[in-house]
């Protein structure tokens, strides 16, 4: 076997790939479910915290800031391992899927909260004055005047952060979630061949390249709008 053949056999063994293709397909489904669940929960929670913070209740803001800073400082993997391997010791057991969903959602929420909050702060003070002068209450001014502008301004950073966190779903592998990487590593150990990992890599590219292109487009579009 020549070196070239050995290379092809190791990384692009078609027989191995087709054998594990159904499992990889299953992995795609799980990755997508996990990603969608994380994005929806994380963004909603982040937005909710940013709105709450706008009311400037001292104690509430203190808690939010602490929560956000800790989650931004900790590597997600640490939290995932603590929840997955630690909680059963006190009688609480979550599935790997639930743990990854929970942790990644909280991390995304922390980053999203900071981004949305910065957006709210960057809206011109005159917008508040104008809204309040027409009789809108604080909440109404926030929801109908300030928030739409903040959301618009923060679309590029939110998109980037969201894509980054969905890629992180691959971390589910370490707690036995059957997403793409999980399926690929299982297949790799059963077959003793790296081809399923290569297939997994190609699947990730196919899943995420469109999102990356989309984010590039969004960034351009919003830069152009602002000019």
């Amino acid at each position: 076997m020549s070196a070239w053949e050995r290379f092809l056999d190791t990384f692009f063994n078609w027989a191995v790939i087709t054998e594990y293709l159904p499992a990889l397909g299953q992995g795609v489904l799980v990755t997508c479910q996990l990603a969608v669940a994380v994005v929806l929960t994380g963004l909603a929670l982040g937005l909710g915290m940013a709105l709450l913070r706008a009311y400037r209740f001292w104690a509430v803001n203190f808690v939010i800031v602490i929560f956000v800073d800790i989650l931004r400082a900790l590597p997600p993997l640490v939290l995932i391992l603590i929840l997955y391997f630690g909680l059963p010791n006190i009688g609480v057991t979550f599935s790997g899927f639930t743990v990854v969903w929970l942790v990644l959602s909280l991390v995304l929420a922390a980053f999203a909260e900071e981004i949305y909050w910065a957006g709210v702060l960057s809206v011109d003070q005159g917008q508040w004055l104008a809204a309040r002068s027409t009789g809108l209450g604080f909440g109404q001014a926030l929801i109908f005047v300030v928030l739409p502008q903040a959301m618009r301004m923060t679309i590029p950073p939110i998109t980037n952060r969201t894509i980054a966190i969905t890629k992180y779903t691959a971390i589910g592998m370490v707690v036995g979630v059957g997403e793409v990487l999980g399926q690929a590593t299982t297949a790799q150990s059963f077959s003793g061949n790296a081809s399923p990992l290569m297939a997994g890599a190609l699947i990730y590219v196919a899943l995420f390249l469109p999102l990356v292109v989309l984010s590039r487009w969004i960034e351009k579009r919003f830069a152009w709008r602002r000019a």
Binding site: D124, L129, A130, G135, Q149, R152
Partner: peptide
């Protein structure tokens, strides 16, 4: 205050229209 404020029209130097 909100019901009173709408009886007091205010116009600003920098317009402050809602851009969205």
């Amino acid at each position: 205050l909100n019901q009173l404020r709408r009886r007091i029209g205010m116009v600003f130097q920098s317009f402050n229209l809602y851009p969205h």
